[in-house]
Write a protein that binds this DNA or RNA. Sequence first.
DNA 1: TCTCAATGGTTACAAATGAAACCAATTTGG
DNA 2: CCAAATTGGTTTCATTTGTAACCATTGAGA
Lengths: 149, 149
Amino acid sequence: MDVLELESFLPYRLYRLADAVSREFSRVYKDRHGLTRPEWRTLAGLGQHGTMTATELGEQSAMHKTKVSRAVAELERCRWLIRTPDEKDRRVEHLTLTKAGLAAYREMVPLAKAFERELLARLSTGERAAIVNGVAALEAALGRSKKEL
Amino acid sequence: MDVLELESFLPYRLYRLADAVSREFSRVYKDRHGLTRPEWRTLAGLGQHGTMTATELGEQSAMHKTKVSRAVAELERCRWLIRTPDEKDRRVEHLTLTKAGLAAYREMVPLAKAFERELLARLSTGERAAIVNGVAALEAALGRSKKEL
DNA sequence: TCTCAATGGTTACAAATGAAACCAATTTGG
DNA sequence: CCAAATTGGTTTCATTTGTAACCATTGAGA
C-alpha cells in the first residue's frame, strides 16, 4: 500500500521547523514588548526603511493587508508610529516610527541578530550554507512559478 | 545605525517560505475534501501508522492537543475514523480510519507525493540536497537544544 | 465629463487557534 | 490504603486570522 511518511514530507518538515524557530524567536518581541508577529514585522519594516505605506509594508513582509492594518493601528495606539497623509493621493498614508518606536526597534535589532547568530552557530559551516542556500533556492523557485500565472 | 534586513533574516525567510509552500499544498486537502491542516495531519498520521492515540498523534505531527482533539472529533463526525477505548487504561482511545477515511487517504497520498516531487523538480540537484540537508540539520540542532532543558 | 474599474485601507463576521481550566482515570509515595 | 500528583483528552474563553464586503479616492475610457 502506498504510504506517506509525514516525518520526511518536505512541506510538513518546513512548516514545523519554521514554526519552532518562529516560536522561539517570538520571545524576543513578545515577552519583551508584548508585540504580535505582525506588529514586530511592521516595526522591523519601518525601522529598516524609515517610511512606508501600508501596502508597501504588506509586500515587504508578506502580510495580508488586514494584518498590516491592525498592526499599524495597534502601534499607532501605543504611539510607536504616526501616519501622515499623502499630499497627492489622499487614500495613502505614510507611516513613520516615533522616537519611542525607533527606540524599541533599536533595542530589538541586536537581539534579533543575536538570535539568528546563535541559531546558526549550532550548525557546521556546511550545514549553514545548506540551509541558507536551500531556502534561497526554494524561494526563487516559488517566485518563478508565481510569475508564470 | 544598526539595521536588520528582514529579507535576509532567517526566521522570517523560513516562515514565509513554509507558509507559501503550506498554502499551496493545502489545496490538495482543502479544496478537494474541505479538510483543515490539523485534520489532514491526523488523516496522514493514521494512514501511516494504522492506529494511534490522540497523544501519539500530537507527538508525531507536532500539534497541540486541542488541535488533535478537534481534528479527531471532526473526522469522527464525518465517519472517517472510529475510536475504540483501551482495555487497560480507560482514559485512552485508539483511533483508526474507517474504509471511507482510508479511501480518502489513499487518494491523497499520490497527490501529496506529486506535490513534493514537482516542488523539488524546480530545483537543481545541488539545491535539492541543500534544502533537504539544511532542514535536517536545523531540525537536529533544535532537537538537541530541546533536550538540554 | 461621466461612468466604471481599480486601488489604499478599514471593518464585520466567521473560523482557527492557544492558554488555562477542567473531568476522569491512573499512578505514586507515604 | 489513601491523598496528591500525573496523564489522556475535552471544553471554555479570549485572541488571532482570513474572507469578503465595504468606503473613499483615483484613474481610464467613452
